[in-house]
Write a protein that binds this DNA or RNA. Structure first.
Lengths: 139, 139
DNA sequence: ATATAGTTTAGAATTATTATAAAGTATGAA
DNA sequence: TTCATACTTTATAATAATTCTAAACTATAT
């Protein structure tokens, strides 16, 4: 039980989530990283099983990830044709998406500037913009 | 068998797709429209069954839509958390996405201008950019 | 300690999509 | 025309991602 885990315990408690050992383990995997992390539920389950030798029920992995998303600790991304991806970088940012490798890379918000913004449909307001730059191998 | 259908027959033939009655019916629904059309396989199946009283096998609807996509007559879009959506507007363009109603609206390419473009990862080239403007009801 | 509300779990259910393999059909050649 | 053949359609089964369910478990406040 290190300092980092104590922080997670506090973080979860203030969010109204009980700091169970499953949630703490998942926190450890997701948030003890230098770089932001893009993952699917399947990725996370594999990491838990193989790298950490933890057998957390699949339903719990879903529950936890969705709880973290609801609390704003994760962001859900929908790109590509497959399943849901989650991103530990919850700030507004953009992505490179490699259609060949299906790989996602973050682009920080200040690297993109949208000059001309369309006016929203009447009665609607724009909450944000996300750009996906499709990339492929240079030939 | 009107003029429009004859055009579809020619179009399909030149694509190497046989103009079957199922494909022609789907062409009629998708492409005889003023505005571009965003739909899921489920939407299209419902339209076929209810509005046109056609019972085309679900597998055929999938096959046809994917064949049309491969030929470049449809574009697949991945936004929101659900299933695949297809767009009859295959030109490069952007979207408004209403997170409350899950509704998609087209934005033509010339209404958006990206000023600052990030440099792609090494060895990769940028093929295109798509912007999703998230909108919600004005309060 | 203990009651209670929040959590985890295995397994079933649901939903979207793809695969299969048999029956049907468009097409070009004879 | 007729016929062979390759392409299509179809119902059904299979797969895959996700959600539901209800019973067992556990953190927490009293």
């Amino acid at each position: 039980m290190n300092k980092i885990n104590i922080n997670f315990i506090a973080k979860l408690r203030t969010s109204g989530l009980r700091p169970t050992k499953q949630r703490l383990k998942i926190c450890d995997i997701l948030f003890n990283r230098e770089k932001t992390f893009h993952f699917s539920i399947n990725d996370l389950t594999k990491i838990l099983e193989i790298e950490h030798n933890e057998k957390i029920s699949l339903a719990t992995v879903y529950n936890t990830v969705h709880a973290f998303k609801k609390k704003g600790y994760l962001k859900e991304i929908h790109i590509g044709n497959e399943m849901s991806y989650f991103d530990t970088n919850t700030s507004s940012h953009h992505h490179f998406y490699d259609e060949q490798t299906k790989e996602l890379t973050d682009i920080s918000s200040n690297e993109v500037e949208i000059k001309k913004i369309p006016s929203p449909p009447s009665g609607k307001k724009i909450d944000g913009a996300e750009v996906i730059f499709k990339i492929s191998k240079k030939i």
